[in-house]
């Protein structure tokens, strides 16, 4: 922190500029410059900073406060201390939505190796149609998640869905993917992986292309084929990118909402889905409590729990990275 802080390093760097003279008296310039630069600095960050403070930082503190209160149906709240947190610990819906969210997050990580493989394939020299492939993979990324979820809800339909029609061609009688407790979470995760694949693919493609060609040339001289090159060069050198993607992907998965809200149903209708207990997520529970049953204080406690989990899992990933991430 101190090394980048203006005060200490300032004079040394500022010293490089003033020698070239100007209209102002030399002696006072560095100090005045410094003050003026600092003022400009504050002025530059002020608009974004104030906005973030009002709409993001302050709300975090307020949510923290809300988590110790109880709300009436039409507003107004009273301090109830740790009640909401006690309730968190014994609420079966919290437990199962947590388990579902973590399972979904773990399943979502499958997308990373998939994206690496496709990125490596797309990066093959002289491959035709890379532009077309890239576009197709990217299409789900730009499509509205609500629309994606609707389309998949239809595809997954037990009687009339395309998925089961295709399975029927090979003699398989497919389940009701999103209404069957045994398949719903997997079906959901598959859509998550499908729609995020293009995003990860692009990031890995950029990572692969940053790997110097010489490495591959040298490996080729040693007689290594494409597969060995992939494992010996691409994979290790891509590990920092993979680390970044996994951090982002975990944070994203833990906040899953849109897909479940549309795919599995919301509110009372959602609760009539037999698979509901197996797909309910933490953020969905938050939404239900905050905006359906108006348990705002309890909802605040639920997201505080989510914050703790996100910070913990991210910290864990940073600790684990030494084991598998190679920084060139």
């Amino acid at each position: 922190m101190t090394s980048t802080d203006g005060q200490e390093s300032g004079p040394r760097r500022a010293g490089s500029a003033p020698a070239s003279g100007g209209t102002r008296p030399g002696g006072r310039r560095p100090r005045r410059d410094r003050v003026s630069e600092a003022l400009w600095g504050y002025a530059f960050i002020a608009p974004a900073g104030l906005g973030l403070a009002v709409f993001h930082l302050w709300p975090v503190l307020q949510t923290g406060y809300f988590s110790f209160t109880q709300w009436g149906v039409f507003g107004g709240h009273t301090w109830t201390g740790l009640d909401n947190y006690h309730r968190l610990l014994t609420d079966p819906e919290v437990a199962r939505s947590l388990v579902n969210t973590l399972a979904y997050t773990a399943l979502g990580l499958v997308g990373i190796p998939l994206a690496i493989v496709f990125a490596a394939l797309l990066n093959r020299e002289g491959l035709r149609g890379t532009g077309v492939y890239r576009t197709l993979f990217f299409l789900p990324v730009v499509t509205m998640p609500v629309a994606v979820a609707m389309v998949w809800r239809w595809l997954y339909n037990g009687e009339y869905g395309l998925v089961n029609h295709v399975l029927a061609l090979v003699g398989i009688d497919g389940p009701h993917w999103i209404a069957d407790p045994d398949t719903a979470l997997f079906a959901l995760a598959a859509v998550g992986v499908w729609s995020g694949l293009g995003y990860n693919l692009i990031i890995f493609l950029a990572g692969i292309q940053a790997i110097p060609k010489e490495f591959y040339d040298a490996a080729a001289i040693d007689g290594a084929g494409p597969v060995r090159q992939f494992f010996r060069i691409t994979l290790p050198l891509l590990s920092p990118t993979a680390f970044f993607v996994s951090v982002i992907s975990v944070i994203g998965s833990l906040q899953l909402f849109d897909l479940v809200y549309v795919l599995a149903g919301s509110g009372l209708t959602g609760r009539a889905n037999p698979a509901f207990p197996r797909i309910q997520t933490v953020v969905q529970l938050f939404y239900d409590r905050a905006f359906l049953t108006d348990d705002r204080g309890y909802a605040a406690a639920i997201v505080m729990m989510l914050l703790v989990i996100i910070v913990a899992l991210t910290a864990l990933q940073f600790r684990m990275q030494k084991r598998w991430v190679h920084y060139g």
Partner: peptide, 8 residues
């Protein structure tokens, strides 16, 4: 069954 009615 309920699963079918959930889908459609």
């Amino acid at each position: 069954d309920l699963q079918t009615m959930t889908d459609t």
